[in-house]
Amino acid sequence: MKLFKNKFFIICLCVAVVLCVVPSTFALMGYGGLARNIVGTLTTPFRWCGTVISNAVEGFGKYFGSVDALRDRNEALEEQNRALSDRLKQAELLEQENARLREYLDFKAKHPTFVMEEGMVISYSSGNYMTSFTLNRGSLHGIKKNMPVVVKEGVVGYVCDVGLNWCMVSTVIETASSVGAYIPRSGATGIVSGDAALRHEGVCKISYLEQNADIQVGDKVLSSGSGSVYPADLEIGEVIAVEVDEYSRTLVATVKPSVDFGRLQYMMIITGFES
């Protein structure tokens, strides 16, 4: 009780009560109060200063906050980008397959009796020039020896060896290969075969053409269907040179195959056809 008899305490208590009652009364009456107004005015610069500092701190925090958000966003976008790239690659593969199959569809429309099996090149010959290929189709898929192999540009060769799930294709420029052929412009006939000297140049020859046969550089060479390996009317290539064989008195022409053997990835094995 001694505490409350203190003069200082009583004065301060009175001041405090006045400072509570007066502003409250003014506030209840709807007035701001003079003292409150003075204090508010005097402290405005300090408050402004404090708010500026707070804004700076907030901006600083937001900067680092936005860096985190950007990093997260970047990671999400990278993930999305990876997924889209994968889908794009898939779509490109499908597009390529679609284009290839469309070409074969045209080929099939031209030759409705052909029964074909598509094969993909899984390895090439180990020689300097790729003239034989291994495909991913074998006896399991109904592939047999001597079946012709074609692409939409023309004849590739024939199946020379067959495994369970693979087969080897020998091209028309190989020495072991021979195809009955004719020149559609003149009707001249001959045999297209590989030549050891020409093989490295990627060309073959057509021989046994009659000496007076009408044959010129640029003539198309098609399969004649004789020999029962190749169906008739498949394009083999184009004549690039003609010369006379002095010994047999026949014409021999050099034929450039219409197929680019260096770029083959897929080809069709003709498993059945009507001759």
Binding site: C12, V15, L19, C20, V21, S24, A27
Partner: peptide, 9 residues
């Protein structure tokens, strides 16, 4: 209503 001057005092 103002009460803090009294309370803080």
């Amino acid at each position: 209503i103002s009460l803090l001057p009294l309370c803080y005092f």
